[in-house]
Design a protein around this nucleic acid. Sequence first.
DNA 1: CTCATAGGCGCG
DNA 2: AAAGCGCGCCTATGAG
Length: 662
Amino acid sequence: MQKKINNLNQEVFDFFQPINKWPETYSDNLSSVGGTLWHNIYGMDIETEGLNPYDNRFRIISVATSPKPYYSFGSYTLNGFTDDFEFNLFKGLVENPDNILVGHNIKYDINWIRIKFGIDVKCMLFDTMFAQYLIDENIESNSLAELTKMFPDLKGYKDDVNRDDLKRMAKDDVLIYNCKDADASRRLYDYFVPKLKTGGYSGLMTTASMVLPILSKMETRGVYLDKEYANKTQSKLFKEMVQLRYDMVEVAKVSFDPDSYKSLGNVLYNKMGFTATKFTPSGTASTDSEAIGYLVDQAISEQQSQFIDKILDYKKKLKLITTYYQPIERWTRYDGRVHTNYSLGKQRNEESSGGTVTGRLSSNNPNLQNIPRGKEHRGMFRASEGFILLDGDFSQLELRVAAYLSQEPVMMDAFNNGLDIHTAVMADLTKVPYDELVAKLKDDNHKDYETLKNDRVAIKRINFGILYGVQAKRLQRLLRIELGISYDLDYCKELINQWLNKYGKIREWINAQKIQAVANGYVAMPLGQRRRLPQASFDKTKEAAHALAQATNFPVQSLASWICLIGLIILDNYFEEHKDKIDGHIVMQVHDSVTSEIKLLNPNIFTDNSFIHISNQMQLEDIQEDVSKIMEQDTLQYIRDVFGVNINVPLVFETKISERWS
DNA sequence: CTCATAGGCGCG
DNA sequence: AAAGCGCGCCTATGAG
């Protein structure tokens, strides 16, 4: 374990402590304000020529660091640092694991530094925007301009400067502006730290500060996309779409545009005589897949039902082409790789958007968290030359978290005994012994095989649905979409009721969450994050209902998400620790899954006093085992150490090795 | 022409 | 159909 992780045991969060280790004094000239570097906390900000650091046309204009409030130092770097002293000072600052760099949306700045200066970033990153998010995720704007309004001397300094101006502004003006930004973030640090402490957010802030550099590494490394692989799937899809288009017009007997929902609605509901059963919020007949799927029941001929199938097939393929295949050219950067941007914490301002209210990451430019499942699509993402992918995901993480949060004994038993949770719930509800059910679900000759399979899907649906606050009506609809079976509404009600009776602690927990949301106006999860829900009430309004659903879902999604983020920290640390044996890099994260690319290094052979040492080469299986242990156990140990929270439900993290993502 | 909104759908 | 949670991003559409 690296020092920075171990240290958390003693003093989880002492960003206050000054360290006397930078005696250098900056000279006092136009581009710097005198001051002695004596803290290990630096405000930081950069100005750039554009927004996209992966674009070769854009350079870093200037860099500013603030060693303490009201002091900052700027370097005009448009054509590189003016001297080695400045560069090395800056490099030393960023590469020192004892340092904390403070900035507003600081990962953005750090990415530029990594890409343009080739500096590795080893310090922690304190993001003032994230700090503000922990304190209030609902705030209308968390821009730097907004937050600095609290400092009278900085009021309005950003008002008349926009990005385009920076390229034309005089050097000194840029530097002053840049220095003010750095100073502002350094001051915000002092403003936020006590607030974070009293709010109980210290552990999460520290964790986030360790996650951000890892996200930066993941993003700047990027992931290799095999365009030839994608092209094959794309042209296959394209051919099929042309054929489908032709077939559909043939049946409809009238030319129409399936890409246009208006035209499609007109054909279905006016020309072909179908009756709409689903409507959009504005009251027009819906043309989404669900609505069209229902029309099968109304089909009066084989041709009509085939038309339904074809339009659904076409819509599916259209989505794949337009959202995933055509944009590929835009996704890949000059290095031929895909660099997403992960956001931690909801960003609400003009300059950046993204993030989530729960603590999950979001991914954009491009979004790598909604790539269609299946090797045919995901397979376009593959390991770099000489590497292989190590892909893993948590099994039923959110259900395990729900079991923990409610301390539901029956469900905890199932997890403790390593049962398949969906089958276990089914066994509980149908009172058929678990082992017997497993056997029946395996035996496709069994007379009840189909029914049982369907029932398991229904159970699975409830298991997830409960966490989201599903009602009988919605469950009925979902089962109809998923299984094509129309269950009786009362049966669905009964199913949900039975479920909640069987797992009574979960029912109690759900009710408690709702009551807390209404009573306090917020709910909290065990690591301290809160979800403020001012709309929460027992009124029969949709806003109130939404708030209550969030009250039950938030702790589950949030805790699950932090477990995974902590996993990133420890996994990255593991690769760092074993870099003599493994060249390993995390490349992607999708909520409960982590993908890395790894390369086994040759055995390290060296001589010492005429002895020959050969360090053991690791095997892939060893690494898989280590990674599973990290995600299943080390994450929970971290949570015990840092948060004093004991998650007493076992986690399962399954890994696989492959060449391509799947 | 640009811009915001609506409808829709991919993922966990 | 904000009575199922959390996202990002596509095109069509219509207003200005």
